[in-house]
């Protein structure tokens, strides 16, 4: 196995076939692998054994940061750094700081979500070895791929190839880095 091998790719021609194949690859214990489909397939997350996305954690951190920043910012500006009485109201009250904090909660939640999605997907990614696959355009239309990466500890070219053959792959090819 040369260092130039990214992994092995198998092509399937129906959502049912790729779903079944994904379950088998999952059960075979592979960790670094992916399914590439032209459209979302219901139940694929479970078939691949994926956990729920961690993006909501980033959203939560963003939201809490936004709320805290809003409250602290208004307290600092209106009650601490330059005390300012407006309309007979207290120098600081969570009441009037609330709309701003709420907006900042939403804004930073959105930033957290987008940022988290970029970080977890390692975006931006301008090149991926699977783009070299000669029938990649079919995978944007009506065919389905499973890619097992060479860096997977369980990966051997023969083992993966045999598994794909057993699963009825339409075509199996090597992928270069």
């Amino acid at each position: 196995m040369s260092n130039n091998t990214f992994g092995l790719v198998a092509r399937f021609d129906s959502p049912a076939a790729v779903m079944h194949a994904a379950e088998e690859v999952r059960d075979a214990g592979y960790k670094h692998w992916d399914v590439i489909t032209p459209f979302p397939i219901h139940g694929m997350d479970a078939a691949m054994g994926l956990r729920r996305s961690l993006v909501p954690r980033f959203t939560l951190v963003g939201g809490i940061t936004g709320f805290t920043l809003g409250m602290l910012g208004i307290w600092y500006m209106n009650a601490f750094d330059y005390p300012l009485a407006v309309g007979g109201k207290p120098m600081f009250s969570p009441m009037f700081a609330f709309p701003v904090s709420y907006e900042l909660t939403i804004l930073l939640s959105a930033f957290g979500t987008i940022g988290g999605m970029f970080i977890l997907n390692r975006l931006p990614m301008h090149y991926h070895p699977v783009l070299k696959y000669d029938k990649i355009e079919r995978v944007t239309d009506d065919e389905f791929l499973i890619v097992v990466e060479a860096r997977d500890p369980k990966f051997t070219p023969d083992g993966a190839r045999k598994l794909f053959q057993k699963l009825g792959a339409k075509e199996i090819s090597d992928l270069e880095n």
């Binding site: 309309g87 007979g88 109201k89 009441m95 009037f96 609330f98 709309p99």
Partner: peptide
């Protein structure tokens, strides 16, 4: 509910 309270609190 907050909006109702907030508007009344603010207008006084």
């Amino acid at each position: 509910t907050f909006s109702q309270y907030f508007l009344i609190w603010n207008a006084n």
